[in-house]
């Protein structure tokens, strides 16, 4: 943490589609930097002291819930855990995450997108017995390594950074995107999910699925949870090639 005070210059995208006649524009705000200041702290400061209409989304403010992804100086990332001291010249440009419906200013509707994604990939254990399981008895055993591996893929926080960084998604609006692939890989790995390769193929075996991916790996570069997109996309591809 540095002790010197500097004035940060925030350039922020402003547009409220709810407000008649409002137009997209960039507005500059100045904020006195405090030690340990994050973009979360700075934006609240602007809202409380300069412009109470400024919209943005934070929930956990600890890099856990995935609410606050936005484009910071050109890079999609979680704003709450981004320290202002990372930016040497003190200039910070904030844009809403592209690829999602804009709610207003820096707030986008990732929730709607993610629910649709979950429905599309059927993001749940497919096992007719899951609801009939006798929970008085010992749980079904699982190899400790397999449990760990599943968790590794389940660490996605649905922030949407991977979606916004994907060139294919920009060209194909219905492209499933890396977050969807990651979810599928997670269930494909899970022995409790009884879906066959054929069933997975039906979800992702086309150009809006894993064969549309150009492996440019914007997803892997920007995933704040460092999920292994490259290996998982390759894994799903291999799995799908052998279907049919």
């Amino acid at each position: 943490m540095s002790d010197q005070e500097r004035i940060l210059k925030f350039q922020i995208f402003r547009y409220n589609p709810q407000k008649k006649g409002d137009k997209p524009r960039m507005v500059t705000y100045e904020v006195t930097e405090a030690p340990g200041m994050t973009i979360f702290i700075a934006l609240n400061d602007i809202r409380e002291h300069q412009d109470p209409s400024l919209q943005f989304d934070f929930v956990c403010r600890a890099g856990i819930c995935g609410s606050c992804a936005m484009v910071v100086n050109g890079q999609p990332t979680l704003a709450c855990r981004t320290l202002t001291s990372n930016y040497e010249n003190g200039e910070i440009k904030l844009l809403p995450l592209p690829g999602f419906e804009l709610i207003g200013d820096l707030s986008v509707n990732t929730g709607k997108f993610m629910r649709a994604m979950s429905e599309r990939v059927e993001s749940w254990i497919h096992d007719q017995n899951a609801d009939k399981v006798n929970f008085e008895k010992l749980e079904e055993r699982m190899d400790p390594d397999v449990a760990d591996q599943i968790y590794e893929l389940e660490r996605c926080v649905e922030c949407g950074c991977c979606v916004s960084a994907c060139a294919t998604k920009r060209m194909r609006p219905d492209f499933l995107s890396a977050v969807g692939f990651m979810r599928l890989a997670r269930f494909a790995l899970d022995p409790r999910d009884k879906r066959t390769d054929q069933e997975f193929y039906e979800i992702m075996g086309d150009d809006d699925g894993v064969f549309g991916c150009m492996t440019l790996l914007g997803c892997e570069d920007y995933c704040p949870k460092d999920l292994p997109h490259q290996t998982q996309i390759a894994y799903l591809r291999r799995k799908m090639v052998f279907v049919k």
Binding site: P144, A147, Y151
Partner: peptide, 19 residues
């Protein structure tokens, strides 16, 4: 509580396991 955790296990939580 034991029933709750076992149900969640069947529904998909990848609880860490004993080795």
């Amino acid at each position: 509580a034991p029933k709750a955790i076992r149900q969640l296990s069947a529904w998909g939580v990848p609880w860490s396991r004993v080795r």
